[in-house]
Structures are given as C-alpha cells and as structure tokens.
Amino acid sequence: MNALEIKNISVTYDKQPALEDVTFSVPEGSLTGIIGPNGAGKSTLIKSILRLIPKLSGDVKVYGKPYKEQRKMIGYVPQRSEVDWDFPTNALDVVLMGRYGHIGWLKRPGKKEKQFAMECLEKVGMQDYAKRQISQLSGGQQQRVFLARALAQDAQIYFMDEPFAGVDAATEKAIMNLLQEWKKQGKTVLVVHHDLQTVRDYFDHCLLLNKTPVKFGPTDKVFTYDNLQETYGGALSILTQESTLLQEG
C-alpha cells in the first residue's frame, strides 16, 4: 500500500521554477530522506504537498484519497527558525497545539489532553521543562518540543523539515528513537535532510531531488555515487568527501 502518491507537482516562485514535474509514491511504513543540494526545492516540496504554498499543478493522494479528506492523518514539523520563539507560551502549551486538529472548534484542551501532552514531552525527555517559557530553551530542546508536538498530533504520515539541523547529541538520539518507533508502528515519515554522511543510518528510502526527482527508492539501491553526482552536479567538494565514505560502506 502506498501511503502517499505525488503526481506531477510543479511550483514556481515568480518566474523561477522551484519544482518541475515531481512524481513519486511512498510505501507505507517507510522512512524517507529527501536529499539534494541547496535550492533543490526540498522544503518547497513538503510545503506544496501540505498546501502551505500554491502549486502550479499537481495532485497529492493520501492512502488513495485526496489530501483534503485525509488532513487529520498528516503531521508536520517545520524548521525551528520558522516560528517566533519569543511567543508568550510554555513548552507544554506548544505540545498541546498538536491536539488542536483533533479537538475541534470552540472546545478547549481538557485534562486528558494535557496528560497526553505531558506523556509526549516525557517521550522526548523534556518533562522537566513543561512550564518553561519557550525562548528559554536551547535549540535542541526547542526541536524536541516540536517532536513532542508531532507525537501529540498522532498522525499517520509525518513531514519533517531539517529536524537534525544544529541539534545536540541528546536531541539527535531522541529524533532517531522517535523515527524508529514510528516505523515500528507502521507510520510513514518524510524528512528533509542535509547531512549525506548519516543518510544510510537514518533512512530506508531516499528521494534524490534537484528541482525534479533524480531517483527515488530504497536507500541501498538509490544512494550511490553516480546518482549523487547526478543530483549535485558540479558541487563536487561535498561529494569528494562523500565518495570515500560511500566506498567504505
């Protein structure tokens, strides 16, 4: 069963094409890393799937049905830099926001919801910071609050935008554990990722993207030197380091 089917997505910023004719299908229960050079449209792809930015064309199916009908199955972890951490609220409250999609109009999160949010904080090792104003958290801790919020959302398909960027070891481990747990539960995860060295460890599937998909498939088949060179083109400075790594692996 395919959790996600993307057909012919194209996006343009002003006159510049950002994504051209992206088509791929993601099997249920897979962990996919979205890999590509800067400006390849990795975040744009996620955002256009989630309808955060307008598409020129394209169609998204979630478990065979249109995106709009399946919105409750989708969870999103944006880049940390995209929100205002001075916002007057605490960590627990941010996690509770993950429940908003379930609570419905007019209602407030109740005791049960708060307890659930607290459990989610515990899972990422942040229970001691529940009442802390969010600007007083470190970057890694903020990222873990976002993870807890994603947990609270209890979605079937997760989209994460660079969750590993600039985090500490503890957070990296928390993310890893979470990804594995989700995989065990049969959830599908797509992660925008920068660090080529860790791709093999983290993901079982890869989407190599440079405005248009170069390759999509299981990591051991797709994540090869030739494919990477095709994706990154002239950006060989990264690839020379990477080639030694690939040959070792």
Binding site: L50, D84, F87, M97, Y100, W105, R108
Partner: peptide, 22 residues
C-alpha cells in the same frame, strides 16, 4: 473566546495551523 485556540496557533506557527486545517 470562540477562536482562542485558532488565534493562538495561527499566530505562533501559521504553517502548522494551515497543515491541520485552521
């Protein structure tokens, strides 16, 4: 009072708000 939640989330994290249908 009616849109308290919606105001809060669309102010703090508009992208997530859109993604959950606010």
């Amino acid at each position: 009072l009616i849109f308290y939640k919606e105001f809060k989330i669309s102010t703090f994290d508009p992208q997530m708000a859109i993604s959950i249908g606010v």
